[in-house]
Design a protein around this nucleic acid. Structure first.
Lengths: 336, 336
DNA sequence: AGATGCTCTGGAAGCGTTTCCATGGCTCAT
DNA sequence: ATGAGCCATGGAAACGCTTCCAGAGCATCT
């Protein structure tokens, strides 16, 4: 059996309350008493029992991260950012994976983390209002990462600004006719990426006094083959665009495929810019928008820790900037 | 304040011991009593307090996973496998990241997870004997994944067998002169992959009565540029190999680069087989050995859970099979 | 000198469970 | 009928800690 606070107290010739005070860095302990107690603690290799501490303080010293585990590197990067921050705190990190929508519903109905964590970090999962209510009723601070939810602090990425940068880059390369390929603008799950990125696209055109051409807009599906299809449609237009901005890299890959089919090369005949900066983007030489994934994790964790320590729990929205990675697919055209 | 077992007892008109018995599915409770208690639990939305339970049972119901967080998808896949198994148990998963060797040392010296977990899952980190001793002294069951450690159950992948498969595949394609490019055979950290894979390479040659040519062996470094360099050396031999087996995909990419430089194409002029099945391997069309990463996680978690539940703690070695993914880089040669 | 207030300390209560032990009612064999 | 044995149940102890409360020692002020 491991040593308890009583063993330490007896051996140090003090009361258990004093040992506890030393452990909790209470100021009212005589320096020599403190030293003696610390010496005994060290000598015995005593470690306070966690459960007992939790029981009386009603603090778990743990925070949970709930995320969908898609194959995407995105989540690992976010997770890494979170871990880096949490590792330097007194908290430990409990991980919950939510893969299916049913699982998600079950999780937020039963709240299995209740009483096991002091706070929640929810990644990429949009929450419905009743679910938020339940969290707040349980008095469980939560921070959203990569989704925005009213009433809760959220860390998101500037999708509008990113798209703006992408399109502005194309304009600076001399392009005037720029197509936009994206997924659904109003998808079931309430994700707003496609809409936001289109907003950025439009803002950039407007800022540079270029017309918005409805026939250049190709909302469809979040799948590579739609990128392919949409690109073919754009190419078939009487006045086809000289550049294409795809709302994500996967769509962009579809676009590049389609170009190749038509004997065109991205970056030489038509400029292409994507969004996400997947690993493959570098291989293919795709100009794209890189998201600060790790930083999102860090920021989210920091906000949660602040809320836990200082009790600050204002539902602030943190929007992180993104940056353009310039590669071959958007090099300057000879005949822009 | 949340309800306690006393509230439930009072409201159900029973003693707290009976409520506890219902909670813990003790057989000695009258069905109608049980039903009454359950009804009250449901009505109040009562949840047992974790800390109190832990305190008296001395069980944390948590297991920790300790892993280096390299950028490799490998760890995510392993993590996913672990999570899948643990999610279906009563345990929760605590995650500890160990990036640097110093961090590693610190972790295994201070054992910060002590008293916070019932068991440990250690991924890819070779442990020194004193560290193992300390774990066992703390009576903390541990399972190693992707490293083998004496005295502890270990889940590893069959590196010898995988290399055997890779080389046998090349032989079946008609190759007789097969080069082997690898990293250090005796690296500082004690990893044995390179040595094991070379063993498989030799075994396959011997099994098919092919000679072991010392000049075909190119141990060096675990870096892509070494693959490049080694391939050039092999090509410069008077009787250069018609196929190259690289001990990992990254080395194989270096090999392919070198071939291209010499105007040769992998799969047409020289066959190349890698090991790992990185995402890029598919893109490049590299024949390679795929490791069951998620399954390693699953198996490791299962072994640990079994040890926790049944007390079985024999230091068994579990070796998972690997399989060959055939792609263009090893298609049959016209003039083998 | 006595009252006052501060600092340091120890005892004990209490956190919410599980589990040991005792009790009372029953059944069953004698 | 009566004692033995079993089953369902409740009370109380115990888990190891934090913290309230009270007390002892001492300096300071009136």
């Amino acid at each position: 059996m491991a040593y308890t606070i009583k063993d330490v107290a007896k051996r140090a010739g003090v009361g258990i309350a004093t040992v506890s005070r030393v452990l909790n860095e209470s100021p009212n302990v005589l320096p020599e008493t403190r030293a003696r107690v610390l010496a005994v603690i060290d000598e015995l290799g005593y470690r306070p029992n966690h459960a007992a501490r939790q029981l009386v303080t009603a603090k778990t010293n743990a925070i949970a991260i709930i995320l969908p585990f898609l194959t995407r590197p995105f989540f690992i990067e976010v997770l890494r950012g979170i871990e880096a921050v949490v590792a330097n705190s007194e908290y430990q990190l409990i991980i919950f994976n939510v893969d299916s929508p049913e699982q998600r519903t079950r999780y937020f109905n039963t709240l299995p983390f209740l009483g096991r964590t002091d706070g929640l970090l929810i990644v990429s999962l949009p929450l419905a209002q009743p679910e938020i209510k339940r969290l707040q009723a349980a008095n469980l601070p939560a921070v959203m990462i990569d989704t925005q939810v009213a009433n809760l602090p959220s860390v998101v990425v500037d999708n509008v600004g990113g798209a703006f940068k992408a399109v502005e880059h194309l304009i600076s390369q001399g392009h005037q006719r720029i197509g936009f390929v994206s997924g659904q603008l109003e998808p079931d799950l309430g994700f707003t990426v496609n809409r936001d990125r289109r907003r950025g696209y439009e803002a950039a055109l407007t800022a540079h006094h270029l017309p918005l051409q409805p026939e250049y807009l190709r909302p469809g599906f979040d799948r590579r083959d739609w990128g392919h299809q949409a690109a073919l449609e754009l190419l078939a237009l009487p006045e086809s665009p000289s550049a294409i901005f795809a709302a994500n890299d996967d769509l962009a890959f579809g676009v590049i495929d389609a170009l190749r089919e038509r004997g065109l090369k991205a970056g030489e005949d038509i400029a292409v810019v994507g969004y996400d900066d997947l690993e493959m983007a570098q291989l293919v030489g795709l100009t794209t928008i890189h998201q600060p994934m790790e930083q999102m994790g860090r920021k989210g964790a920091e906000v949660l820790l602040a809320a836990l320590n200082e009790g600050t729990r204002r539902p602030t929205l943190y929007t992180l900037p993104v940056n353009l990675i310039e590669r071959a697919s958007s090099s300057k055209l000879s005949q822009a």
